[in-house]
Design a protein around this nucleic acid. Structure first.
Length: 177
DNA sequence: CGTCTTTGACCCGCGC
DNA sequence: GCGCGGGTCAAAGACG
């Protein structure tokens, strides 16, 4: 139970968690959007290689993606293959930043090829927590925001959200099919 | 004054 | 080797 992370934590382990897990399951499981990352050359979404489904107690908890490190910061030992949990999902939202309860610091913004919207890079500000996320709005559908989480939070949320509806009000998970 | 955003520079991997 | 694209750093500025 310790080695996976809810995308949007809830402050109380009520059936709210189950509801939200189901929403995530419905959108990640199967052949639709699990492990999908955008291909900027084609504007399409490709299934990432080496995606494994993380299942605990018979319950889908998210894709695991093995990525090759490129060297540079503390988490990228050059030439070494490291495992990181990375979750990508689409939401329909007018706001780019969903308030998921954690505090994020923006550390970069890059123009992406074949996309008129820049990609934004955020890092969790909690000490010792190295979770990152990328947020990008899609050119082909401006109402869709692609959020990619990388890593696992080592702490509890900074801003507890008691109302599950509050999250849903900000977003509408987009099912491409 | 502390925290956060902005943004140009830099680094690295990859394809040609 | 070179250019391109993606990811990160860090200084400067904005803001509460």
């Amino acid at each position: 139970m310790e080695n996976y992370q809810m995308f949007f934590p809830v402050s109380s382990p009520s059936n709210m968690e189950n509801n939200f897990s189901q929403v995530l399951f419905d959108n990640f499981h199967g052949d639709t959007s699990i492990g999908l990352l955008p291909d900027m050359k084609t504007g399409r979404f490709n299934q990432v290689a080496e995606v494994k489904e993380l299942v605990e107690n018979g319950r889908f908890v998210g894709p695991e993606i093995e990525i090759k490190s490129t060297g540079g910061d503390c988490c990228r030992k050059k030439g070494k293959k490291i495992k990181k949990h990375r979750y990508a999902f689409e939401t329909r939202s007018r706001v780019d930043i969903l308030d998921d309860g954690y505090r994020w610091r923006k550390y970069g913004q890059k123009a992406v090829k074949n996309n008129k919207f820049p990609r934004n890079y955020y890092r969790c500000t909690h000490q010792g927590c190295n979770v990152k996320k990328q947020v990008q709005r899609l050119t082909k559908d401006e109402t869709v925001v692609l959020t990619t989480y990388e890593g696992v939070h080592t702490h509890h949320i900074d801003k507890p959200i008691d109302n599950f509806q509050h999250i849903l009000n900000q977003m509408q998970i987009y099912t491409p099919f």
